[in-house]
Design a protein around this nucleic acid. Structure first.
Lengths: 189, 189
DNA sequence: TCTGTCGATGAGACCGTGTCTCATCACCGT
DNA sequence: ACGGTGATGAGACACGGTCTCATCGACAGA
């Protein structure tokens, strides 16, 4: 039993998406978001470090999921197989709720540079984490970085397709995107 | 003859690097940077849109250089050859002054998440621009994106080596990095 | 030399972000 | 009933960033 209305954090996320979508990110204030969630500005900042972060809530876990998935790959796996394992593990955790929020979220983020900047940072962080996983398996430097880049690119392309309603599971789409990206990378010259 | 001390913008850039390096980015105020440049806060914001931007001044031109360089490649060039042309064109414009500022700049940026976020955004923008150049030459979607990613990655790796004092020209280093990245990309499975 | 224009700067008010401290409130175990 | 605990509210605060208005210094033209 909660002492106050439960799920304050989730309410803030939904309020942020709604308010930013309705008024635009820059024209919205944190106080407005908090009020829509039935809270105050101070409480907003207890749950999120800044005005943008509610739109990226949960995204920090993806790094840990990638790492865990990569660790499950057999010791003699190729870089691409390790990345596939990481994608499989991460995509398996996505829920129908996340799928439903996807398009609105991507629309809001795409409309404001400040939010695209945060998205680019999250993406770079994910690539860094995956690169580290690959390096720790003995995969040398430029190879690890490229393999990680392909993996993250596939992750995002697959999420876009999946949340836009394409049939296959997120995991299947990610594997498919990764294969396509790898094929493209081998035909550049 | 200037009516005031000339090169206000350049003085602000140097002041920003100095102050952020000495006190840390978050502990510094825009007023301090402006004062060190002999100016005021209001003038700072006439030259730069926000506190971070002076550290990335000039970086916006790289996109245009990439585009111009890509346009110089012959019509039947492979994706990798187009990227090489873009790198050649962009790297040729770098000066000894930029080389000298490189390490200090990278150290300051690497030390603060807010600045790394901006760097990630600039990088993503560069990749987007290069991807567009490749697409307009008829290179299909996933291939263009991958080729652009390799090019931007090579661009940054080469800059790090070049500004750290490695012998070859920036252009040579970039070509070398691009070759290495392409080789790595073809040996992932 | 005087005068008016023009662009860069300074001064300062203003709102919102993000931080901090303190008070309040509801539940929980004793 | 009582104190402990943790989430919240209230409000002050520094700084980022925007805006308006005044100032200044060079230049052109009379």
């Amino acid at each position: 039993m909660a002492r106050w209305e439960p799920d304050a954090r989730l309410r803030l996320v939904q309020a942020a998406i709604d308010v930013y979508a309705e008024q635009g990110f820059e024209s919205s204030t944190v106080a407005q978001v908090a009020e829509r969630a039935g809270l105050t500005k101070a409480t907003f900042f207890r749950h999120f470090p800044d005005k943008r972060e509610p739109l990226f809530a949960g995204q920090d876990e993806h790094g840990a999921l990638f790492t865990a998935g990569a660790a499950e790959a057999p010791a003699n796996a190729t870089p691409l197989e390790v990345v596939t394992a990481a994608l499989d593990h991460a995509t398996a955790t996505f829920t129908a709720e996340q799928r439903a929020f996807g398009p609105r979220l991507r629309a809001v983020v795409a409309a404001h540079d400040e939010l695209r900047e945060r998205a680019a940072f999250k993406r770079a962080h994910l690539a860094e984490v995956l690169t580290t996983s690959l390096r720790e398996r003995g995969i040398p430097d430029p190879t690890a970085a490229i393999a990680a880049d392909l993996g993250v690119e596939a992750f995002h392309r697959a999420f876009a397709r999946w949340s836009d309603g394409e049939g296959p599971s997120y995991g299947e789409l990610a594997r498919e995107e990764l294969r396509a990206l790898h094929a493209a990378a081998t035909s550049l010259s």
